[in-house]
Nucleic acid binder design. Structure first.
Length: 553
RNA sequence: GCCCUGUUAGCUCAGUUGGCAGAGCAGCUGACUCUUAAUCAGCGGGUCGCAGGUUCGAGUCCUGCACAGGGCACCA
């Protein structure tokens, strides 16, 4: 099979016939040919092609020459039996290489066929070295003029950065000890017409990296690594949940009532039904209905949408794991969470020491635990139950609404502003026993109704997870929702309406349960050492760029 | 929404007190059979983010706008 792919001008007839039932007629070939020479065909036509960057024009011109002079088809074809660059490197055989060095008649070196994008290119007359890259790594391709057809060598020696190639040959080594493919067959698989970034620094402009992630991915090797790690984390969590007996489900992302959290939703509209819909801010109320229906353990890993600003820790769409276990409680979910994070950390590194910013975080040791009220008192200097002291403190700290705002909302503000930052970022910490007043979906303590069976997990200055013993008393739940709606200001309230059907479901009867929400993006940040959420989301939200050629009416 | 910083060649970046727009990489032409960000010789490449203003003169100073990064606010 060696040397099978190649320099054919166009795909052969059988191949294209199998694709679409047509062979490629001459006029199509001519059409393609014309398109390859915009600078020639449009010389006297000023428009777009003329001001196309010289670099793009140079690439088009080179492609045109290859087509004319060497019969190259610049868009490639199916290739079977390709090795990943990592696998190809692994089959290198030192003894076969040594034997070949001693006597070139004796060539037992393994052969490989590989493909990748050119990221380095060094042509030295009759010898050309280039480095190609795929998602498994880099590999040098060495091309000797004497080892392959002359047209193939000419393409190799004039190759542009960014071109995608297929090469076939023996896995060997250079005199300088670089493991490489000594190609005896070399072909273009896709011409890259866009000028690439600087080959040493790559794309360092953050905006370009996010807007043109496809360039960032092949330019900076950390990018693909990060997203492969993300994939491994998610699949580890998924199989962990499956092993624990949880059933994975998908619930609506478009909801008539956006419930389960207090965030502002995105609004959309269903044309045929003529109804407004909201993108979900949480799947919670649907997942709990499944417990009502009889599922004992469920989870969903998917997107939530919250109409808020962006920051290093926030993207308007983000991925959450939510899970519910019938006959569990918040303690059940705490144990589950700790074990799950530990196994995810171990799947991608050493759980006992994961670097995140300036911190080395140990997920192997039991996580810390501290009561909400306890942290609060340490940070603020008074009990969270002491309303007068809270109001005084809030006033002292310059809160404008210190007199009017609900006591527990003040407590929550003070906690977020002063207590949360006191938590040790390098210690995963469960903050337990949140105030009931700010936990409307949570069961209160039996003997202390101001506290609830709820915890949040903080790591690296971020809230990672949130769990409760679920409130399943329908009358109390209805009361909480009602209070919540009355308490909200007009802006927030505009999006809130009571989910009557959820209350009905609770009346049908939901078993006692523990529930958990875990931010996947933030967990991935922690486990990959990325301090911006945009670096763990493939296509983070960006404002569209202004149109340059604006035709205003 | 607010504050700070940034925006100069395809990319990475310099640009002095306001006085002719610079480098490296990439590109083009040539040399080179063991390179490693190859090297050497030569050549081309600019709406200095956009729009105004001050000035004899603006990449540089001022105002507004756009986008980005960081911070704040929002996010129970």
């Amino acid at each position: 099979m060696r040397g099978k792919f190649s320099c054919n001008r166009f795909p052969d007839a059988t191949r294209s016939a199998s694709n679409n039932g047509n062979t490629i007629p001459l006029f199509v070939a001519l059409f393609l040919h014309i398109r390859y020479h915009p600078t020639i065909t449009m010389t006297d036509n000023k428009p777009q092609q003329q001001d196309e960057s010289q670099l793009v024009a140079a690439r088009r011109a080179k492609m045109g020459r290859w087509i004319d002079d060497y019969g190259v088809y610049p868009w490639g074809n199916r290739e079977d039996n390709l090795s990943s660059l990592e696998d190809a490197r692994a089959v290198f055989d030192q003894s076969a290489h040594d034997a070949f060095k001693e006597n070139s008649e004796n060539d037992a070196r393994p052969r490989v066929k590989v493909a990748g994008r050119c990221v380095q290119h060094r042509a030295m007359g009759k010898l050309t070295f280039l480095v190609i890259r795929d998602d498994s790594g880099d590999l040098q391709i060495s091309c000797s003029k004497s080892a392959m057809p002359i047209e193939q060598f000419k393409v190799a020696s004039k190759l542009d950065y960014g071109d995608i190639v297929v090469a076939e040959g023996a896995m060997g080594m250079t005199n300088k000890g670089e493991i490489c493919v000594w190609a005896d067959s070399f072909g273009l698989a896709c011409k890259s017409l866009a000028p690439p970034p600087e080959k040493f620094h790559g794309l360092s402009d953050a905006e370009l990296r996010y807007r043109q992630r496809y360039v960032d991915m092949y330019t900076s090797d950390d990018t693909i690594k990060t997203f492969k790690t993300r994939s491994r984390i998610v699949s580890t969590i998924r199989s962990f949940m499956h092993d624990e007996g949880y059933v994975e489900v998908e619930t609506p992302m478009m909801q008539p009532v956006a419930g389960g959290a207090a965030a502002k939703p995105f609004e959309t509209h269903h044309n045929a039904l003529g109804i407004p819909l909201f993108l979900r801010i949480a799947p919670e109320l649907y997942l709990k209905r499944l417990l009502v229906g009889g599922m004992r353990k469920v989870f969903e890993i998917n997107r939530n949408f919250r109409n808020e600003g962006v920051s290093r820790k926030h993207n308007p769409e983000f991925t959450m794991l939510e899970s519910y276990q019938a006959f569990g409680d918040c303690e059940t979910m705490l144990e589950l969470t700790e074990e799950m994070i530990r196994s995810a950390a171990n799947a991608v590194g050493d759980a006992s020491s994961m670097q995140f910013g300036d911190h080395v975080i140990d997920y192997a040791k039991p996580f810390d635990r501290v009561g909400y009220g306890e942290v609060f008192e340490q940070a603020v200097g008074c009990s969270m139950h002491d309303e007068a002291a809270i109001r005084a403190k809030a006033k002292e700290l310059g809160f404008g609404d210190a007199d009017s705002k609900n006591h527990w909302l003040l407590v929550s503000d003070l906690f977020d502003g002063y207590a949360e930052p006191m938590l040790n970022p390098s210690r995963p910490t469960f903050v337990t026993d949140f105030p009931s007043a700010i936990s409307p979906l949570t069961r209160p303590h039996e003997n202390e109704e101001t506290l609830s069976h709820r915890w949040e997990l903080f790591v690296g200055d971020m809230e990672i997870a949130n769990a409760y013993t679920e409130l399943n008393d329908p009358d109390l739940q209805l009361q909480r929702f009602t209070e919540q709606m009355q308490g909200a200001d007009d802006e927030v309230n505009a999006f809130r309406s009571l989910d009557d059907d959820f209350i009905h479901a609770l009346r049908v009867g939901m078993p006692p349960a523990g529930g958990l929400g875990l931010g996947i993006d933030r967990l991935v940040m922690l486990l990959t050492g990325m301090e911006s959420i945009r670096d763990v989301i493939l296509f983070p939200l960006m404002r569209p760029q202004e149109q340059t050629d604006e035709a205003d009416a």
